[in-house]
Amino acid sequence: MIHPYRVEIPQADLDDLAARLRLTRFADEIPGAEQGVAVERVRRLVTRWRDGFDWRAVEARLNALPQYVTEIDGQDIHFLHVRSGNPDALPLILTHGWPGSIAEYLDAVEPLSRHFHLVIPSLPGYGFSGPTKELGWNNRRIAAAWAELMARLGYTRYGAAGNDAGSMISPEVGRVDPEHVVGVHVTQVFSFPSGDPAEFADLSEEDQAGLAVLDWFWKEKGAFNVLQSQQPQTLAHAVTDSPAGLVGWLAQLFDEDLDDDFVLTNAAIHWFTGTAASALRLYWENARMEPVTEPTTVPLGLAMAEGDFKSIRRFAERDHANIVSWKTLPAPAHGHYTAHTATEALTDDIRAFFEAL
Rank of each mutant, 00 (worst) to 15 (best):
D215S: 13
P197D: 08
H180L: 01
E205Y: 00
G195Q: 10
S204W: 10
W218V: 02
V189W: 00
F200P: 02
P193V: 12
A238R: 01
P232S: 06
S242D: 13
H180E: 01
G222I: 01
F217T: 14
V189A: 13
V189I: 15
V184G: 07
E172P: 02
V182T: 15
M168L: 14
G166Y: 04
W216K: 13
A209T: 08
W216M: 09
A201L: 11
I169A: 01
R175H: 11
A244D: 08
S194C: 06
G183N: 13
A223E: 15
E205S: 14
V182M: 04
D207L: 00
F190W: 15
S194I: 05
F224R: 03
Q188C: 05
V247M: 00
T234F: 01
V182D: 00
P197Q: 05
V184D: 09
V181M: 09
V182L: 02
D196V: 12
A209H: 09
Q230N: 05
D207K: 08
S191F: 04
D177F: 01
A244P: 08
A201I: 13
H180A: 08
V247S: 03
L227W: 06
D207V: 08
G183A: 06
L235C: 06
S229A: 15
G222T: 03
G245C: 12
V247I: 15
H185E: 02
V247Q: 04
H185R: 03
P171K: 12
V182I: 15
K219E: 14
Q233G: 10
A198S: 13
G245K: 09
E179H: 06
G195F: 04
H180Q: 13
P193C: 12
D241W: 00
G222R: 07
P197Y: 08
A236K: 09
P171C: 09
D241F: 00
